[in-house]
């Protein structure tokens, strides 16, 4: 067991899997010698050699296509797309190729591969280093989409993703690489070393895909969230003093509908929080699921707290970012209907 931040935990997952399986290859822009712009692959080339961890041309479509070819051969490639904002040149390869390989060949060819990509805002990255495009991928049949919210989960989920026989999009909220940012941008962020989820086993372990985690048990309402917003939601709950249940979805597809259903049926109220834009975002899918499955248990309309439907703006970062104040407002709204808060 070691104290790790999320970067170290991801590095440890890659290291663990490269050590266990010579078919695991890690590559991407600046990933090899330098160890990645966020240092997630630091030391791997030195340890495993340049044919196992290497730099690539700046061609995201080519990176993913290469990974698909390698996976078809029988390897388990882990490709890094440097920023989720840069994933679009690879969209066709992900959506039309990796996602459908098993289906269109009836299982003759498959794409067991992971695409890791830092996502999300809060770092003054402007519109090209801040996006949360997970909803574009949860819409695609054949893909799995994962987003961890802490170092412990990041390692366990990444290992499970590498071992998965289907293609996995693994989005890493970069704002929480170094600590559980709670949305209060004017306060210092606690490092992961002071957080329970910063305790990470050095050895191999898995967190199964498709399983959510209740990070805070409660009875008055359910907050469905993932990634950075888990910490923002928890903070909002603390500050409001309500007895909310916070569910960290961890895997967006396949979604843990049982965890959602159990919780919302218990609390009767639901707030959905994500950083991505609102319209046709993953929150819309969550709302539909809750409505379809829990309608007669609902005591208030479901609320969504999301990024605004604009490109990610540089100077208005904190007006854009759905921070604790907006989450609190939503919490009060779903509870006030019965006059609880």
């Amino acid at each position: 067991m070691s104290r790790m931040n999320m970067i170290q935990a991801i590095n440890s997952a890659l290291d663990t899997m490269m050590d266990r399986d010579p078919d695991v290859l890690v590559f991407g822009e600046d990933v090899g010698y330098f160890g990645g712009v966020f240092r997630c692959t630091a030391g791997l080339q030195e340890k495993y050699g340049p044919t196992r961890c290497f730099d690539t041309p700046i061609a995201e479509g080519g990176i993913v296509a290469t990974a698909i070819g390698m996976a078809a051969y029988g390897l388990r490639p882990v490709a890094e797309i440097q920023f989720a904002d840069y994933i679009y040149p690879a969209f066709d390869q992900i959506v039309s190729e990796a996602a459908r390989m098993r289906y269109r060949s009836s299982g003759e060819f498959t794409s067991p591969m992971v695409i890791r990509s830092p996502c999300g805002g809060g770092i003054f990255g402007g519109q090209t280093h801040s996006q949360s495009p997970e909803g574009l991928f949860t819409h695609v049949a054949g893909l799995k989409t994962v987003m961890p919210s802490n170092p412990y989960d990041a390692k366990g989920l990444l290992i499970a993703s590498i071992e998965d026989d289907d293609p996995v999009l693994f989005f890493e909220p970069k704002r929480i690489y170094n600590g559980p940012f709670d949305g209060h941008h004017d306060r210092p962020v606690q490092p992961w070393t002071k957080h329970a989820k910063g305790e990470v086993p050095d050895e191999y372990y898995r967190i199964e895909l498709g399983k959510a985690e209740v990070t805070r048990a409660g009875n008055d309402l359910t907050i469905l969230t993932y990634g950075t917003m888990v910490h923002v939601a928890e903070c909002a709950v603390e500050e409001t003093g309500v007895d909310a249940e916070v569910i960290d979805l961890r895997t967006l597809l396949p979604i843990d509908v049982e965890a959602i259903e159990n919780s919302v049926k218990k609390t009767g109220r639901c707030v959905i929080v994500h950083e991505a834009t609102k319209t046709s975002g993953f929150g819309a899918e969550l709302m539909a699921l809750v409505q379809e499955r829990c309608f007669y248990h609902l005591e208030a309309p479901i609320e969504r707290v999301t990024g605004w439907d604009t490109p990610y703006p540089h100077a208005f970062e904190w007006e854009y970012f759905p921070g604790p104040a907006r989450v609190q407002k939503a919490i009060r709204k779903v509870l006030e209907i019965e006059g609880v808060a």
Binding site: G61, A65, M70, L75, E97
Partner: peptide, 16 residues
């Protein structure tokens, strides 16, 4: 789409 996939397959063959 298959063009660079073939390259990836060939790279895997070389790696192995």
């Amino acid at each position: 789409t298959q063009f660079c996939q073939a390259v990836g397959w060939a790279m895997a063959s070389a790696y192995k």
